[in-house]
Simulated scan of single mutants.
Amino acid sequence: MQRLNTAPRTSAAQSPLFRIAWGVGSIVGFLLFWEVMALLIQHRHLPPPTAVFSAMAREFASGELMFHIGMTLYRVVVAFVIAMLIGSTIGIVMGRNGGIDRFFDTWLILFLNLPALVIIILCYVWFGRTEVAAITAVAVNKIPNVAVTVREGARSLSRDLAEMAHMYRFGWWKTLRHVTLPQLAPFFLASARTGLSLVWKIVLVVELLGRSNGVGFQLGTYFQMFDVSMILAYALAFIIIVQLIEFGILQPIAARVNRWRR
């Protein structure tokens, strides 16, 4: 009887609506706590959430909010695609060729440990404060992370499946499409999700240092004015967009990629 009573509770606790309810409740609780603390402290550097959402609504109505978020998303998408293509190619080549892997492994470690700020500054010095420099800085910071993850996937490719493809004369295209890429899909997804979280942060720093638009630029502008309401308004709006992309795009893709495991 105890087992029968436990199963429904476990399934209910794992249901999407149950998790959403807990998530929403947690956010509402945090906002209430924030509102109370702001009212108690009464300081201009800790505005209540009502003031922050009011500032966000004004920026949205004027079109400024969506324009700057759009510019940031443009840089994120372009840099992300470039980094994924180059990093995946490097990772596959290094994972399948031991000599190349040993030769370039030190360089990969070097770029992994090179501070993002150094790369950003060097790109602006070498290429000027241009869009090309901004996107290059973001992509260069992301490429080593993608290469390391995909390299591990390339090292773990099944030799039996490769021999089967060779025996049945799949050719390089069919082998890549039906044998290699399906095995690498989880590694592509892992590098995409971890790398995207890194790209979000680096793009803001790039915009703060050398662009005249974007969320990072706006954060820097309102920092100089000590306008905490506007800083939080842009930060929260950007977080909302990132969460929508995570739940609306990345998680469905992850579920599709991992569907064969069920």
Rank of each mutant, 00 (worst) to 15 (best):
H166W: 12
M167L: 12
Y168G: 03
Y168M: 13
R169H: 15
R169W: 06
G171Q: 14
W172A: 10
W173S: 11
K174W: 05
L176G: 07
H178V: 12
H178Y: 15
V179E: 08
T180S: 04
L181P: 02
A185K: 00
P186H: 01
P186V: 03
F187Q: 00
F188P: 02
S191G: 02
A192F: 03
G195S: 06
G195C: 05
L196P: 03
W200R: 01
K201S: 08
K201V: 05
K201E: 06
I202D: 00
I202S: 02
V206R: 08
E207Q: 07
E207V: 05
E207A: 05
L208C: 03
L208E: 09
L208I: 10
L209Q: 06
L209I: 13
R211H: 06
R211D: 03
R211A: 10
S212Q: 11
G214E: 03
V215K: 03
L219I: 14
T221F: 15
T221C: 04
Y222T: 07
F223S: 14
F223D: 11
Q224F: 12
M225A: 15
M225I: 13
F226V: 14
F226Y: 14
D227E: 13
V228Y: 12
V228R: 09
S229E: 10
A233D: 09
A233M: 11
A233H: 13
Y234T: 10
L236V: 14
L236G: 06
A237Y: 05
A237I: 03
F238P: 02
L244D: 04
L244I: 15
I245V: 15
E246N: 14
E246I: 04
F247K: 15
I249D: 08
L250N: 01
